[in-house]
Simulated assay, not measured.
Amino acid sequence: MALLSLGGRLFKRGADIRSALTASQPFCSSMASGRQRVNGVDLYYEQTGRGNHAVLLFPGALGSTRTDFGPQLKSLNKERFTVVGWDPRGYGQSRPPDRDFPLDFFERDAKDAVDLMKALGFGKFSLLGWSDGGITALIAAAKNPDVINKMVVWGSNAFVSQHDLELYDAVRDVSKWSARMRQPMEEVYGAEVFAKTWEAWVDGIAQFAKRPEGSICMELLPLISCPTFIIHGEKDPMVPSLHPQYLLKNITGSRLHVMPEGKHNLHLRYADEFNKLVEDFLED
């Protein structure tokens, strides 16, 4: 079964691939971009909109603001929101340094994200986190309750199951992928660095399976106090429904919306529907 990594986790079948690639193409828009020194690294970011409500976008594994959030940077309401996309350290244009995956890499990304927003002058802001970025957002919200307004997460999990490990191991070796599948990430990283970094990510995420219950951030979920919106694609091949259900049960006051046709890249493939859901939630 063909699988593709593109900024988040994985996509199946050619239609998903074409949809994701089309939706994430660069676009023309008024946007500020630059690098901000945060915690010893230069983090790349892009900022658009002039609304009072600041929103930070968290990309997925090996992802970047442009590969993962083109439709959101382009189309989220710029009068109501100020939208900031960023490349976590070692990803996209936030290199050097090379990416590594110590056991605390999600916590490190969460701290970088919050400190970046503070450095850019935002006192309070909301979070939109996809896949690995959703995990980072969960941790950021739990550890920084005073600065987080609201949070939206999708394609994310608070623990790693044995089934999850099997999915990751099946795609460890990118040389077995088709050239078309490898191309998006090879354009960002180069073939050798992409292969090495992807394998390191597989090892990095797998190490959580050795923790009690495979926890990534299970113990932090009860600390989340901001309004939280969980979106799940019912046809997501990488994140079974038990993961969003677990988040719903363990995040006080959270709500869950299921998109029947949604897969892992639901915010790209169904961008208009997703953006409206997010805007309505943030403005509620």
Rank of each mutant, 00 (worst) to 15 (best):
F106T: 02
S94R: 07
L10Q: 03
G121H: 08
W86L: 13
D68L: 02
Y45A: 04
L266M: 13
L57S: 03
L220G: 01
G40F: 07
D87P: 09
G214H: 04
N265H: 13
D104P: 00
E283L: 14
D16N: 15
M259G: 00
N250W: 02
Y246F: 15
H264C: 11
K196L: 08
L266E: 06
L128H: 00
L21V: 14
L57P: 01
R269E: 06
S5I: 11
K276G: 02
E279R: 04
M218H: 06
W154A: 06
P237E: 03
R180Q: 14
L223E: 13
A137T: 07
A2K: 13
T82E: 11
Q25R: 14
A200C: 09
P71I: 02
L4I: 11
D109Y: 12
V83C: 04
L128T: 03
N52V: 09
I231W: 00
T22S: 12
Q207P: 07
L167K: 14
K143Y: 02
K118F: 08
G204E: 03
E283F: 07
V55S: 01
L128D: 01
A142E: 03
G155V: 06
S254P: 10
G133V: 07
V202L: 00
H264Y: 07
C226W: 05
D16A: 14
V114R: 00
N144Q: 05
P97G: 10
A271I: 03
N149P: 01
R50K: 15
K118Y: 07
F101V: 07
D236L: 02
L4K: 07
D16V: 08
H257R: 10
K78L: 05
A119G: 07
L247N: 03
W201K: 04
S215P: 12
D164V: 08
M238V: 07
G92H: 07
W154K: 00
E186A: 11
R18I: 10
Y44P: 01
L223S: 12
M31S: 07
F105E: 02
E199S: 15
K196A: 14
L167N: 10
S178M: 12
L247E: 03
I139H: 03
N77Q: 06
W177F: 15
G40E: 02
S24F: 00
I216D: 01
A170L: 14
S215N: 11
R18F: 08
Y270Q: 09
L57E: 06
T65Y: 04
N265G: 14
S33I: 00
E273A: 10
F11H: 08
D173L: 04
D203A: 14
T48Q: 05
D42F: 03
R50Y: 13
A15I: 12
L62T: 14
Q93L: 14
A140C: 12
G60I: 06
R80N: 10
C217L: 04
C28V: 13
E219W: 03
K235N: 05
L73P: 06
D236Y: 02
I230H: 09
P59T: 11
F281I: 10
T22L: 15
R50M: 10
S225D: 13
A209D: 12
